[in-house]
């Protein structure tokens, strides 16, 4: 459990990080290291160069505007969790952060690192998906934005180019009459969830559902977005009820089985979490 030899490059600026990425063969960005270092210790990843962006002041900002929350790439999970600004602008981010790992890991791991890591079991991949957020990147050939829907390509595979780094992630705030909730089940406190769902429900002026959607964790290669519009629009969640939602979700979700959950159990649990997160939006 020792990594292969690598060279370490602390980046002095985003530009330098982008420069390193374009010049060095087989280089990887190092943020909090909470996912990358274990992979290296198992020699499942053996990058030749690590470019450390964790100390970059220009990536350490949390910006809250009228309509959006933007989190810089060196902002840790703990900083998001403790940010009062984020807490009042987009409580869902804080609710999700609470479900991520343990304090010591949150103290180093970054929100943007979670997104770059593209783990379909990660809470932030689901949150950015359900909110239709985006990430902002930099590279020597210039930056771009990648919509959440285009960001995840497979387990631990994002659509970032090799010469590109995430500089921040942007999450739209919820509109008026819109409620969100995150529910998940993990085998132990702080573990990746066996199943989980994050729902966003927008109500019309009669307090009936106008639109509703949920993103599911751990049910496929990428976060799975399900729309409840056909089922719920013009209704109340409680009137539609557990059984219909459960059956609808059971037919929609095609999860895999693994050591912690058979495919059937995970489908069941995901449907239950889908219902629980909707119910919490009532």
């Amino acid at each position: 459990m020792k990594p292969s030899p690598f060279s370490y490059h602390p980046a002095a600026s985003v530009d330098e990080a982008a420069q390193f990425l374009s010049e060095l063969e087989d280089a990887k960005i190092l943020a909090g290291g909470q996912s990358l270092i274990p992979l290296m210790n198992f020699r499942l990843a053996s990058p030749t160069h690590l470019i450390d962006i964790s100390g970059l002041a220009e990536l350490s900002e949390i910006k809250v505007s009228e309509s959006e929350v933007e989190i810089g790439a060196s902002v840790t999970h703990s900083q998001v969790l403790q940010s009062e600004q984020v807490g009042s602008a987009l409580p869902l981010l804080v609710e999700a952060e609470r479900l991520i790992a343990h304090e010591v890991i949150r103290n180093r791991g970054t929100l943007c690192g979670s997104l770059a890591h593209a783990d379909p079991a990660g809470e932030m991949t689901a949150v950015i998906t359900v909110l239709n957020g985006r990430v902002n990147t930099a590279s020597v050939s210039g930056g771009r934005t990648i919509e959440a829907a285009d960001l995840f390509e497979g387990p631990l595979q994002s659509s970032l180019r090799e010469d590109e780094l995430i500089v921040s992630a942007t999450f739209p705030k919820l509109g008026p009459r819109t409620v969100s909730s995150f529910r998940e089940v993990a085998r132990r406190h702080g573990d990746y969830a066996v199943a989980g769902a994050v729902s966003v429900v927008e109500y019309d002026n009669d307090d009936q559902v106008h639109s509703a959607r949920a993103a599911f964790l751990s049910v496929g290669p990428v976060p799975t977005l399900v729309s409840f519009d056909d089922l719920l629009r013009g209704n109340r969640i409680e009137d539609v009820g557990h059984n219909e939602v459960y059956n609808f979700l059971s037919s929609q979700l095609e999860p895999h089985g693994d050591l912690q959950a058979s495919a059937d159990y995970r489908r069941h649990l995901s449907a239950e979490m889908g219902w629980a997160s909707l119910e919490a939006c009532i």
């Binding site: 089940v185 066996v194 912690q260 959950a261 058979s262 159990y265 069941h268 649990l269």
Partner: peptide, 8 residues
Amino acid sequence: LFPSELHE
């Protein structure tokens, strides 16, 4: 006894 097995 794991939850998945108990479910089954």
